[in-house]
Design a binder for these strands. Sequence first.
DNA 1: TATTGTTATACTCTATAACTATA
DNA 2: TATAGTTATAGAGTATAACAATA
Lengths: 159, 159
Amino acid sequence: MNGIHNTSPEACSDFPAVLERVFAFATSVQHYMEAGLTAHGLSRPRASVVWLVHRNGPQTQRALARAIGVTARNVTALVDGLEQSGFVRRVAHPEDRRALLVQLTDQGRSVTARLAAEYERHSAYLFAGLPDEQVRQFVASMDLVMGRLAQVATGTVDR
Amino acid sequence: MNGIHNTSPEACSDFPAVLERVFAFATSVQHYMEAGLTAHGLSRPRASVVWLVHRNGPQTQRALARAIGVTARNVTALVDGLEQSGFVRRVAHPEDRRALLVQLTDQGRSVTARLAAEYERHSAYLFAGLPDEQVRQFVASMDLVMGRLAQVATGTVDR
DNA sequence: TATTGTTATACTCTATAACTATA
DNA sequence: TATAGTTATAGAGTATAACAATA
């Protein structure tokens, strides 16, 4: 690759410093996401609802709550907001009369299409010029760290 | 944009898929941060105040507001919470009688020390066994993507 | 009895706008 | 006039708990 032969005395990685970079990176990505969604009239939590329905089809609020990891009460609020702003609609569940299905409206389908197009465009720019190998390794590193974060979080490791 | 003529069959990376991984990674890191802070009685916004004071010493709320990127009103609320929970204290500014300085209490100093120790421990685990070169490249990739995200966000690139 | 979704209530973070006390 | 911080008000996201209708 590009020989960054850091021969300096402390050539070894400063792990806490790397973790701080990871935090900064995550925050930066978060801001990017929020900004993009806001421009389309969506917040991050609402977008997660829209995206789940887009990907997996009409679902009960209960299913959404489990997928997102929030309480049922919260999904009620999110869907309320999304219904008011016209992105989704609640319809009766065909078999279970307790449940409702959340489905996208035309406006909801339109916004997911625009977001997908935007991400395609942006991702092409974000990773332009990077050697394939570097991209692969980047993804591999993220996956590895993500996996270990999960272990730290679940207490598999000492906290 | 800049002509990215991806001529290879499909040996090349699926950029939108990579971007989705980046989103998942950022979300995962965010959860890890929140969880760790909550365990110490801090929320992410409050921790950012505590961390800034820890790093840069006693500061006015105005300075904190600018550093964090929120309104002055918000900092008032954050410092209110932190004062109630005993992490910081407001003291008169020695020269400017309009201003207040936010400084850490013993409890505040204690929590930053514990957090720093925890991050040191966790980072050692998170990156354990990774070749130095891979860690360096991971950081380099994050930096590159972060830089381009900023460009996308500021509209330097088409949106 | 258990589950789906709601109402009721509360806490945190965020923002604008108007106000005070000082510079 | 401008700045530092506050009060007032509002909206979004999160959580628990109690309740209705239905399984």
